[in-house]
């Protein structure tokens, strides 16, 4: 699946990968904020931000092209709206929207590609996200691939028996509904199995945290630098 690659990237090693997830999360939010507050009048405002991101990509030792392509998933939405703006005589505004939304998506992708999901979730929890969300997200992410594989196998099995061309669309619709119901039943069984396995290892309601990451001076330095850089970027495009 597509997002497999992001999980793979997040396990690489680089100066950026080694920073504490909290510092990276806050730095990303600052970056997005500075970009969002920058003027909407021209696409040029996004250029300094893009340059900073490219530098960070380089330090993260991540493959440039795949990341640039991956974050293009925001473009269908952006291009449609940019074209609308252009057609209604607001070309520069449309260009700015396009550029800024793309750079924002790239910034978030950089965070996801340099931070393993468990650390990112721990960071969110220590920044105040309720534990329930973190736990739901953990098991969602854990079983996403498992259940998607079931769905994939069901799709293949249906293709093998000519499932693409039902004689009547309504029959195909009902067949899809049936396979979704089966997928649901499997998910339900999975949830039950997990629950039984948790109980048998002494689970009694609370999920204590085993590993607590440490916030090192270098992380503080990184965050301070990100703050300064964000402010500088914002000023550089607004004071011009």
């Amino acid at each position: 699946m597509r997002h497999h690659r992001i999980a793979g990237w997040s396990l690489l090693d680089s100066p950026l990968h080694r920073r504490d997830a909290r510092a990276k999360l806050l730095a990303t939010l600052l970056f997005l904020l500075a970009l969002a507050l920058a003027p909407q009048s021209s696409a040029l405002a996004a250029v300094p931000f893009a340059l900073v991101l490219l530098a960070a990509l380089f330090f993260a030792r991540l493959p440039l092209l795949p990341l640039l392509l991956r974050s293009a998933s925001v473009l269908p939405f952006s291009i449609v709206f940019a074209l609308i703006e252009w057609a209604s005589g607001h070309g520069p505004h449309g260009g700015a929207l396009l550029a800024k939304s793309y750079v924002s998506a790239l910034a978030v992708l950089l965070l996801a590609a340099s931070t393993p999901m468990p650390s990112l979730l721990h960071a969110m929890e220590s920044l105040g996200v309720p534990r329930a969300f973190v736990l739901i997200a953990q098991s969602l992410f854990r079983y996403l691939f498992v259940i998607a594989e079931v769905a994939q196998r069901m799709r293949l099995a249906s293709l093998c028996r000519g499932g693409t061309s039902p004689l009547r669309p309504s029959a195909g619709f009902r067949a899809s509904a049936g396979s979704l119901a089966v997928l649901f039943a499997r998910s339900q069984q999975r949830a039950h199995g997990i629950h039984m396995a948790m109980l048998s290892r002494g689970f009694h309601g609370s999920l204590p945290l085993a590993v607590r990451p440490r916030f090192r001076p270098s992380d503080a330095g990184f965050l301070a630098a990100a703050c300064a850089l964000g402010a500088a970027l914002y000023l550089s495009v607004t004071l011009r």
Binding site: M117, P118, L121, Q138, S139, F141, R142, Y143, V146, R190, G193, I194, M196, A197, M198, R201, G202, F203, H204, L207, P208, A210, V211
Partner: peptide, 19 residues
């Protein structure tokens, strides 16, 4: 897959002792 529900191997193995 029913049993290993936590995001990393170490956290999962530590789940029982924590409980």
């Amino acid at each position: 897959d029913d049993q290993l529900f936590l995001p990393t191997v170490l956290e999962d193995v530590a789940f029982g002792p924590l409980n």
